[in-house]
C-alpha cells in the first residue's frame, strides 16, 4: 500500500507491504546509516527518530509510518557532524556498526534531557549495544557534545 512520509525533511511516497519493517524500508530508500543487527529491538543499531522520538526501526511496521516524520543520520547534518566529531576524537566509533544509531540517540538525548547528570546520560544511552568500545568513551563523547553550542 502507498504511504506518505517526510524523510529527513523531504516528502516521499512509498509503496510498502503490511509485512515490511521500517528499518528495511529505510535502507531501501537511501538510508544506509540504518543498520540491522539483532532484528528484535535489543541492540538499538537501527535507531531513527519517528515523529521526534528515538525508535527501534526494526520493530516498527512500515505501514505505521504513514504520515510520520522520520529522521536518520543522513538528515541530521551539522548536529551529526558535531556528535561524530566528539565520538571519533575519542575513538568511540569502534567498528562503526552501532555508531549511526548511537548518533541519532545522542541527538535525541540532547533534545529530551536538560542538563543531565552523568548517570542520566548513561541510562539514556543504554539501549544502544556496542561490542567494541566498552561504552565509557561514548558517554564522554556525549557529555562533550552537550557542552557544544
Amino acid at each position: 500500500m502507498k504511504i506518505q512520509v517526510t524523510l529527513n525533511g523531504k516528502k516521499q511516497e512509498w509503496d510498502v507491504t503490511p509485512n515490511e519493517y521500517l528499518a528495511d524500508t529505510l535502507r531501501a530508500h537511501g538510508c544506509p546509516s540504518v543498520k540491522i543487527s539483532c532484528g528484535d529491538g535489543a541492540c538499538g543499531t537501527c535507531t531513527v527518530l519517528l515523529n521526534g522520538k528515538p525508535m527501534v526501526s526494526c520493530e516498527v511496521l512500515s505501514v505505521r509510518a504513514d504520515g510520520a516524520e522520520i529522521v536518520t543520520v543522513e538528515g541530521l547534518e551539522e548536529e551529526a557532524d558535531k556528535i561524530v566529531d566528539c565520538l571519533t576524537r575519542l575513538g568511540g566509533e569502534g567498528c562503526g556498526w552501532c555508531a549511526p544509531g548511537f548518533v541519532v540517540l545522542a541527538y535525541a538525548l540532547k533534545r529530551e534531557l536538560h542538563n543531565p547528570t552523568y548517570d542520566e546520560v548513561k541510562a539514556y544511552l543504554n539501549g544502544n549495544l556496542c561490542r567494541c568500545t566498552g561504552y565509557i568513551v561514548r558517554i564522554e563523547a556525549v557529555l562533550e557534545y552537550l557542552q557544544m553550542p
Binding site: 546509516s33 551529526a80 561524530v84 571519533t88 562503526g96 549511526p100 548518533v103
Partner: peptide, 21 residues
C-alpha cells in the same frame, strides 16, 4: 598522538562502507 580513525567520520555518518550497502 591521539589520531581519529581515517574512516571514523564516514562510519559515524553512516556512509555505505559495509558489505550490505
Amino acid at each position: 598522538k591521539q589520531t581519529p580513525r581515517i574512516e571514523g567520520k564516514a562510519l559515524g555518518l553512516g556512509h555505505p562502507l559495509y558489505m550490505a550497502d
